[in-house]
Design a binder for these strands. Structure first.
Length: 425
DNA sequence: TCTGGGGTCCTAGGACCC
DNA sequence: TCTGGGGTCCTAGGACCC
């Protein structure tokens, strides 16, 4: 008993690093390096998709744009109504991956335990590192200044005793700030915040909580946990723990091993009304998914297809395979079957292909139905991957895509896969 | 007038087995 | 003919995050 008590008492120091307006900052830095005379961060500007491709929403905004009431996720034309002089720049995911990688390698100088949480967020376990870089606040300022000087963009750093409080702290005043949220500060710094500022409280949960007269994080923290459990089941218990700052997951540096699924989806430039076109899109998506799967040295056991109609209704269909695979053809065949089984004939706006239940690719079990060409197919896929990696993903394309109506390899943000967000931290 | 794309986890119901 | 529960797997859908 003594031992477990001592372990419980072991205090950790966790930092959460959050890039301020990440996409926009990175584009601004890049433009300045190329000799631009305006800094996107200083003017009302957003990163957003193009209207004609039907991807016109705000992905990131500058602080001056925020002053006009522009919100992330909002449609571009609406944002322009709020601010007619708004500058809109297209997204550049390869740039973001490069910037993110540069940040990651700098942060790793300060602890062996760094977890990449998303393209612009990282957790750092600073426990025991005081000897090298000083007190946590002092170290956080050093990191922040070094990032600004060497990489050219600003970050917020939140310091807490676990990942949850560190993350909430980094979300306090922005930009270019260091904040703490220690356990003793929870009642003063966290409880007065609106309940939707709590990690895991989104639009729907906020509405439900507000209807129960729970308006602040403090209200939630002081609600009877049994009552929350009766309303939300285990999620209620999670909410209560988070509202009280209770969270103890480790900062894990283990990335690729933790990937649960790989998927790509795309909004098509026009509504798809026939099967043949849908098949082409599905093949194009499968090309990216399968390539990423092979790059992760994994096979999948489940394939799923998602359809979003022009009316924005979506539904999905999935199937467990007889045997795991990473072969493009095999995944595509299943995807096409799934599509045929569930498509109700509506106009299609968006299609997605996802694989899950991943396993290693080193001992793929053969099945009774195995055809002798399997090894050949896999070798062919690997050869194509190699050529695409070396000469670009459009260097080798299938005959069905020559009309260029549909991209031959669609979806995919970056080459570097890592475990993304988990809702459990 | 129009609403992206990448993820994770949880739940509920039905099938199936013991 | 009518009746159990418990456990696991599979699938669809919905919540959340960035």
């Amino acid at each position: 008993m003594r031992i477990s008590g001592d372990i419980m008492a072991a205090k950790r120091t966790i930092m959460h690093i959050d890039v301020n307006s990440a996409y926009l900052s990175w584009q601004a830095v890049y433009d300045l390096q190329k000799g631009a005379d305006v800094d996107l961060r200083q003017i009302p500007s957003v990163v957003g998709g193009s209207h004609e491709d039907r991807k016109g929403i705000v992905l990131a905004k500058s602080i001056p744009a925020k002053a006009f009431g522009i919100q992330t996720g909002e449609v571009i034309w609406q944002a322009k109504q709020k601010c007619p002089d708004l500058v809109v720049v297209p997204p550049n995911y390869e740039l973001y991956m490069k910037a993110s990688n540069a940040l990651f390698s700098l942060i790793k100088d300060y602890s062996p335990k760094v977890q990449r949480f998303s393209v612009d967020e990282m957790f750092l376990d600073y426990t025991g590192m005081e000897y090298f870089f000083g007190e946590p606040i002092e170290a956080a300022y050093k990191i922040k200044e070094r990032v600004k000087k060497e990489l050219g963009f600003t970050i917020n750093i939140g310091i807490g005793e676990n990942k949850l409080t560190a993350k909430i702290a980094s979300d306090f005043k922005k930009p270019d700030m260091v904040h703490t949220l220690y356990q003793r500060e929870i009642p003063t710094k966290m409880w007065p915040l609106p309940v939707e500022d709590l990690f895991m409280v989104g639009r729907k949960t906020k509405k439900k909580l507000n209807e129960m007269n729970i308006k602040t994080i403090g209200d939630l923290a002081n609600t009877d946990v049994k009552f929350l459990y009766s309303r939300f089941k285990s999620f209620g218990y999670l909410l209560w723990r988070y509202a009280n700052g209770i969270e103890n997951s480790p900062v894990s540096g283990d990335r690729i091993m933790n990937i649960k699924g790989i998927g790509n989806s795309t909004t098509i430039k026009f509504d798809v009304e026939d099967k043949e076109t849908a098949f082409k899109v599905l093949l194009s998506l499968t090309e990216s998914v399968a390539m990423r799967l092979r790059a992760a040295k994994a096979c999948c056991s489940v394939v799923s297809v998602e359809i979003k109609t022009s009316q924005l209704n979506s539904y999905s269909h999935q199937r467990k395979l007889f045997a795991p695979t990473c072969i493009t053809d095999e995944i595509y065949t299943v995807a096409a079957e799934l599509f045929e089984e569930c498509w109700k004939g509506e106009k299609i706006r968006h299609l997605g292909v996802r694989v899950s239940q991943l396993s290693g690719d080193d001992f793929v079990q053969g099945t009774f139905f195995d055809d002798v060409n399997r090894e050949k197919k896999e070798a062919l896929d690997c050869a194509i991957d190699y050529i695409r990696l070396k000469y670009g993903k459009h260097s080798i394309i299938r005959g069905v895509f020559v009309d260029r109506e549909i991209s031959p390899v669609s979806g995919g943000v970056g080459e570097d896969d890592y475990a993304m967000m988990s809702s459990i931290l």
